[in-house]
Design a protein around this nucleic acid. Sequence first.
DNA 1: GTCTATATCGCGATAGAC
DNA 2: GTCTATCGCGATATAGAC
Lengths: 209, 209
Amino acid sequence: MPLVKGRMPNRERILDVALELFNDVGTGPVSTNHIAAGAAISPGNLYYHFRNKEQIIQTLFEGLFEKYERVFVLPERRAPSLADLRQLVRLNFDLLWEYRFAYRELAALLRRDEILRERWLEVRRRGYIGFRYLIAAFVTAGVIAIPANDAVIDRLADLCWLISEFWLPNLEINGQSIDATQLDRGVVLMLQVLNPNLEPAQLSEERPL
Amino acid sequence: MPLVKGRMPNRERILDVALELFNDVGTGPVSTNHIAAGAAISPGNLYYHFRNKEQIIQTLFEGLFEKYERVFVLPERRAPSLADLRQLVRLNFDLLWEYRFAYRELAALLRRDEILRERWLEVRRRGYIGFRYLIAAFVTAGVIAIPANDAVIDRLADLCWLISEFWLPNLEINGQSIDATQLDRGVVLMLQVLNPNLEPAQLSEERPL
DNA sequence: GTCTATATCGCGATAGAC
DNA sequence: GTCTATCGCGATATAGAC
């Protein structure tokens, strides 16, 4: 049964349908035949556009990478604020959700596909450097209220990174709903890490940071 | 090619081989034929012991659950120390490593298999309650140096739980080696969360906690 | 409990016409 | 670019002998 409605080049339809199917049931059970059927084209046609399923997955990841790099833009010519962090994390959660098949199977996919692994490490390295820089900037801007040498900054960056990458998977694994409220709990955790001495009320959404 | 050496009931050999293969290449590419071959029995024989691959996975998870519950034992008749926490986290990491196929595909597996999902939630719920209790005990014991009402304790528990569940996957995803040193970085992150005002040196291994 | 044999199925991939 | 047709393979699962 076709899954796509609008007019679109077949190559993109394939990617579109594949993403939807992967998100729905995972990459394993979805065959190239399923994808072709969903895109309302013949199996042979699919193989004109892609060598195999692996390449479709790689291409989807490239889309993820592209959007991902657009999330990690730091403000120019002014010190970053916690509001920037909150915004960044939220955008990141949106992206994780859009490509949820990817994080659900990430370790397994990277393990199986060397090309994908290399690309992932490359993108992630750049992202982490920017992120680490953001945390360091908080310290110099005085936004963070704990004694911070380089080792501490490393740890804070690791912690926040861990939350931003795994809070959503954590919610899913534990059967909790994925909505704005639940996602914001992740943001609050991050603020707790950065400002552990703040009063709880000050961490909530109502008080702009 | 057979994978198992010693004498063992076939049912357990199957589980043993399956775990090894799953850990090695993931559940997807491993067929019941592969498992049977690894266990040096016929494919038909395998189906005498298990209905299908799904049931093998479920059975492996039951083994994980059993060991998992043995990890979460809190000290009786004395206040828990940070050393207890460290010990608990390390045992947990060991377990995650032994069943690494499970966390690599956890979200996907739980999604596909309702029985597994229910069991997971049940076990995890009990584990979390004990863990939350441990953190709360730290507060009353004065081991934790930040103002702690119930909401803060919730957050600390969530943070530490997140680390204990995802630090190892995080290392793997980012291509870092899985050795004692790297795993202990996870423990240090947890201590950073609980005692953010401590001097960094006090968090290191040398200073017993 | 264990084996052999077999039935059925669907997947991945290609060839060749249009 | 897209289709139809098809081949070869391997996976799941069962039947029936031992």
